[in-house]
Design a protein around this nucleic acid. Sequence first.
DNA 1: CTGACATTTGACCAATCAGTCAAGTTTCTG
DNA 2: CAGAAACTTGACTGATTGGTCAAATGTCAG
Lengths: 215, 215
Amino acid sequence: MDARVDEEPGGGGQTRIQAINREIILQAALEVFSVHGFRGSTLDQIAAKAGLSKPNLLYYFRRKQDIYEAVLRDTLALWLEPLAAIRADGEPIEELRRYITFKLRMSREQPQASRLFANEILAGAPAIGGFLASDLKALVEEKAGVIRGWVTQGRLAPIDPVHLIFAIWATTQHYADFEVQIRAILGDQVDGRGFPEQAAQAVLSIILNGVRPRA
Amino acid sequence: MDARVDEEPGGGGQTRIQAINREIILQAALEVFSVHGFRGSTLDQIAAKAGLSKPNLLYYFRRKQDIYEAVLRDTLALWLEPLAAIRADGEPIEELRRYITFKLRMSREQPQASRLFANEILAGAPAIGGFLASDLKALVEEKAGVIRGWVTQGRLAPIDPVHLIFAIWATTQHYADFEVQIRAILGDQVDGRGFPEQAAQAVLSIILNGVRPRA
DNA sequence: CTGACATTTGACCAATCAGTCAAGTTTCTG
DNA sequence: CAGAAACTTGACTGATTGGTCAAATGTCAG
């Protein structure tokens, strides 16, 4: 029969095994969904990667869609964090440098999360369209206001703030989303010690010099 | 029986109907594959969009994979064209401006081609991995050499040429690949008359000022 | 207008898909 | 250590998938 409500697999309270297996499933699902997107991924792939049987997967998540949404939800907050951290009372160039550096590090350490979103957006954002149009839009508008203020004060070159945010997203996430292409062009160099710094220096140089106020 | 070799559906010579229907199929396939990727797309979706029956699809292309590769091949050349057009004997900033402008126009006029590649790369480039590591790599290295020359001559700020190319790809293709996200944030503004110019001005301003030599 | 060939399709197939279920096994609690 | 609940799974289902095939229809040159 029904377990105590707060110990249902989908609920808040979890048993030890639930906590472990839900985490295993979400990690496996991230690896699969981030490569093939929702439609292109199968429960069998996820089950195999998680080392669980397919019915067992569906014991923890009733539907494939539920797994997908759980993975997306888990990574959404993580993804917005750095943008939210931009402070209006900071030094503009330093704030942007910190934001870009943060985003580049996330592309390096969580490339699958980046690819998961890329797949979701390419597919038309069926699962997070509402979130984009509400929370993300509000956050971008807020930070665009901050940047616009810096421009008005002459602390940044005149630039459309929203497009600047797009440019930062694009250049930083590119290293995660297009990693295969980058690896095809640069080879094992990508795994070298200096590569992250090299990429960071290039991106920071282009964008920061691109928005630095010109006398 | 076998038709004359040069009139086989897959061959070079085509009947009138073949030419028409192959084009219809490739256009429908582009629309489907660019949204859901190879694995996430179905022949039924393509057939429905093309207004043909599924067996008829397979009369012109023997396998789903063949349709996919044909669409990719058709768009690959188009995609490299602008990079190849960068000239060593041009004015650096003007050459880059032309390249960025070209890429932005392609993102606007051929967003599906951009998304098709994005999906292919995200999936690990199973179909074009070899091409990336050979042709694209060679082309990038050649143009990187050109840019490196400009830097050496002091006509561009010191910047890693390959990462500059990545940054240009990222910022320009972002408008095609993440259109849904951009639309969620900016709304119908995206359809406005001035939007392409606004985006172009922002991207050009950031990148060109980012690489302009500083005294 | 006719015959050869190109084109189209309904019916079908085996494989894979998401999801169900009843019967098992394991784990936890008192 | 017993009983209850949590967990696991083999076997299954109906739907969808890519792909086949024989038969029917359309096209076009002579």
